[in-house]
Design a binder for these strands. Structure first.
Lengths: 230, 230
DNA sequence: GCAATTATTATGTATGCACATATTATAAAT
DNA sequence: ATTTATAATATGTGCATACATAATAATTGC
């Protein structure tokens, strides 16, 4: 049982959990015991167990010991859809079209999201994303120009607004809301579909520190699917 | 600059990256240098940087050094919706109703998903989930009875099929597909809504090892939203 | 009997050290 | 000049040790 790296210990213990050697919520041996069993230092066991705890497979408590998570929470994890990459991953050709760009006072729900004063203007951009010349998604975006004034100078012929923002403010936080809606006339027209058809909607707000950058609403073509593996 | 745990070092470096001290793809100081800067051992810096690399914020190469990830991939991560918890988290009362339970030969797409032979039967279960006596979601589920024969004996008065499965085969893998669809007559009736309304659909397949366990399709009430923070 | 104090215990963290490994830079050989 | 060996270097890993910290168990005092 010698020659064990923290990797191999981690995978060994993961397997033992999955095989049901310790049931849900059960206490597993202490680091000290596992270190003698695997013939390695306690530090090595510690690294392995901490990694499994980070994943949510184990729960650790000082003195209480380590137990298999009683309620193994399964996370779905997927990349934020960057439309160009979604399209190009399929082998299709990506293209986008800026159909509207104006500065005006946003509606109240957007003002609240972006933390903008009552009479303050913001930048509104409307883009249609194409996959092989078929419309894939309509993007409605408000940008807080106080936070990112440079955007007023940027032209969006080559890269999309999103890509520009990713390059300019790379490490942002945000929240995302997924929902299903019926297309209104405007969206249906842009997607060359029919009003009432179901559209997958991604609603996203992005901020850096305490400054709100942008609020985006993406309406996907009907039939669009978002895939994830657990 | 003394008294630094690997936690504080990690967060300090994260902040420095977010503040743009090192730009995208730039090389950051070597562990040795950071250890003198922070006044701690190299091991401590190593743990901090490895954690940030696991998150995808840094890319590390032996001899090549550590650099800020040039293409910071942002992941959205959220718990697999367990309906009872979604409901109870809102403070509402959860209830479910098994409206159909039968053994029969599944349609071909399900047979493919569950890897079931042509003439093999499977268990079909249809459940309506309620939040405060308002229908929240309709669940259509096929269970591979060869993989989980015990399920034929289980009664689902107290716990839902999903909870039963989580307890019985806790460490499963799976994939998930999100989409938006228009409700058909049956779904609309079950949700006390109208045909054609947009419904958020979660399509999920679960397996353990190489055995396929179950395929679920969840149709959520119109207006349903799935929230995540990045 | 019950509260307050004091061990005991398992994990958490930091450190110094040694060596492994991958990669790049440099020098030597052809 | 090109290939081949060699050295240098940054990260990867393991270990022994020490002490910190949190939670429980045992003990003591009233």
């Amino acid at each position: 049982m010698t020659n064990h790296s923290h990797h191999s210990v981690r995978e060994s213990i993961r397997t033992r959990i999955e095989n049901g050697e310790w049931s849900l919520g059960a206490l597993i041996p202490a680091e000290k015991d596992l270190s003698t069993e695997y013939g390695c230092a306690r530090t090595t066991i510690n690294r392995a167990l901490q990694a499994l705890a980070d994943e949510g497979l184990l729960i650790r408590k000082r003195k209480g010991g380590t137990r298999v998570c009683a309620m193994p929470v399964r996370y779905a994890k997927f990349e934020i859809p960057i439309i160009r990459e979604q399209v190009e991953a399929k082998g299709d050709q990506y293209r986008h079209e800026l159909v509207c760009k104006k500065r005006e006072i946003p509606p109240s729900d957007i003002r609240a999201k972006l933390n903008i004063e009552d009479q303050e203007k913001a930048l509104y951009l409307e883009t249609i994303h194409f996959s092989n010349s078929a419309p894939l998604a309509v993007e409605e975006r408000w940008v807080n120009t106080q936070a990112v004034p440079e955007i007023l100078q940027a032209s969006f012929d080559d890269i999309s607004v999103n890509e520009w923002l990713v390059k300019t403010v790379p490490f942002s936080s945000g929240d995302v809301l997924f929902s299903a809606q019926n297309m209104n006339e405007k969206i249906a027209a842009a997607l060359k579909s029919d009003a009432g058809k179901a559209t997958f909607v991604v609603d996203r707000t992005t901020w850096v520190g305490d400054e709100f950058i942008t609020a985006i609403k993406l309406y996907y073509q009907s039939g669009f699917e978002l895939y994830t593996q657990l």
